[in-house]
């Protein structure tokens, strides 16, 4: 909510909720500076961004990165042309930010060494823990760019055209890289004793 100590420009925006049309309204109002619209847009979209970032950079880093992604989104919203869906643009920012973060992390020699967040967890309640752990492990091993592509397809259910738009690569490249990602995941799983 806006307060006296929160001097932002506010505009009216429609009260409709979360299907495709109101997202466009929320984007337009957010672009005009409505903090309330920005919050609604965040509410609509942050779970899918967070889900992607957790798999890209780990549970411990995802909080800070989701914050960074949305700051980047709101600060550069004027550059969003509307030619692609907002969701596609959001995925583009998310993947770019996570790849940049991973590159920076690789350069940072003195960073506190953190083990994989998911590897920290204890096998307590999940009946499928073995399979889940296997999948966490092989995904973490996969090259980050291939991983982002696999996640956009398998978890976020994006089409090849949407992935191509998000990652700014041709659809043919999406197809070949996705095939490569699946082959590698299968190979890594088999190396860990998985029987397809």
């Amino acid at each position: 909510m806006l307060t006296a100590s929160n001097p932002v420009i506010d505009v009216e925006w429609p009260e409709e909720t979360l299907d495709a049309e109101p997202i466009d309204d929320l984007v337009a109002a957010s672009r005009r500076g409505s903090r309330e619209a920005q919050q609604r847009l965040y509410d609509c979209c942050h779970q899918r961004v967070y889900r992607l970032l957790v798999r890209m950079v780990g549970l411990g880093e995802a909080d800070d990165l989701v914050q960074q992604v949305f700051l980047q989104v709101f600060r550069t919203l004027k550059q969003f042309s509307g030619q692609s869906r907002f969701e596609t643009w959001l995925y583009r920012v998310s993947v770019n930010e996570s790849l940049q973060h991973l590159r920076k992390q690789q350069r940072c020699q003195r960073c506190v060494s953190l083990e994989s967040d998911f590897m920290d967890r204890q096998p307590d309640q999940e009946r499928d823990f073995d399979h889940k752990e296997l999948m966490e492990h092989v995904l973490a091993r996969l090259d980050a760019e291939l991983r982002s592509l696999f996640l956009l397809r398998e978890v976020e259910k994006q089409s090849y055209a949407e992935i191509a738009a998000a990652l700014q690569i041709p659809e043919g490249t999406v197809a070949s890289r996705l095939s490569r990602a699946r082959q590698l995941l299968k190979q890594y799983l088999v190396e860990l004793g998985w029987e397809p």
């Binding site: 961004v49 967070y50 798999r55 995802a62 989701v66 499928d128 999948m135 398998e154 995941l185 799983l189």
Partner: peptide, 13 residues
């Protein structure tokens, strides 16, 4: 492979 992917946790922000 898709079945395995569905078993991944879905953490909430």
């Amino acid at each position: 492979l898709s079945d395995l992917t569905t078993k991944l946790d879905q953490p909430s922000a």
